[in-house]
């Protein structure tokens, strides 16, 4: 089992519904977010290209945050989901510093918080909150090891990229281009 997410940059309109859904579902404290939307404008007027990306933790296969964590609070859960055990986290900031995507933050209660791919929802067979609310249906979530899963199928059909693969993290968010 290897969970992954594919996000269609051609369909995403940057509405930030995914961000609000995540904040609501996961009780993210006010002023913080576990996912966010990046808008990229490339080129010189009038030849401009626009890309929207809904970003979050990449649930890397070679996760620097898990490696750097001195207590083992950051760990890889089933399906390759990178998680934090609150009561093992000392809030040293090593994982926050080690993430090239800046996907982690310190919860006001002191421990480090991040995207969990809505682990509690997928256990019940539901989709992550962000995926389930997307009005353009630009996000695909599923098991990469299952060739018939939605995410495997779309990655077979479409061209995609990952973010900073040169950082050696082997990220598991795929952006369809």
């Amino acid at each position: 089992m290897r969970y992954a997410m594919a996000i269609d940059t051609k369909k995403c309109v940057g509405c930030s519904d995914c961000v609000v859904a995540c904040q609501t579902e996961n009780d993210v404290p006010v002023g913080f977010c576990r996912d966010w939307v990046v808008e990229v404008v490339d080129g010189t007027y009038p030849q401009l290209e626009l890309e929207h990306r809904s970003e979050r933790c990449n649930h890397c296969e070679n996760a620097p945050c898990v490696r750097c964590c001195p207590t083992g609070a950051s760990y890889v859960d089933d399906g390759g989901i990178v998680q934090v055990k609150k009561n093992k986290c000392i809030g040293c900031g090593a994982c926050v510093t080690s993430c090239p995507y800046d996907a982690r933050f310190v919860h006001p209660k002191g421990y480090v918080d991040k995207c969990t791919f809505c682990h509690h929802r997928i256990q019940k067979g539901q989709q992550p909150a962000c995926v389930s609310v997307c009005p353009t249906k630009c996000m695909y979530f599923g098991d990469l090891d299952d060739p018939r899963s939605e995410v495997s199928m779309i990655l077979k059909k479409r061209k995609y990229k990952t973010l900073i693969p040169e950082a050696g993290t082997k990220p598991h968010l795929y952006f369809l281009i």
Binding site: G14, S16, V19, G31, F32, C33, W36, V37, V38, E39, V40, V41, D42, G43, T44, H52, G93, V96, T97, D102, R104, F105, V106
Partner: peptide, 23 residues
């Protein structure tokens, strides 16, 4: 020219606009 901005207004304390977790 390439410009990237976080349009959803992510402003995580100690992380944005750049990391400041170690003072």
């Amino acid at each position: 020219m390439r410009e990237e901005i976080i349009v959803s207004g992510r402003n995580n304390h100690l992380i944005d606009p750049h990391l400041e977790i170690w003072e």
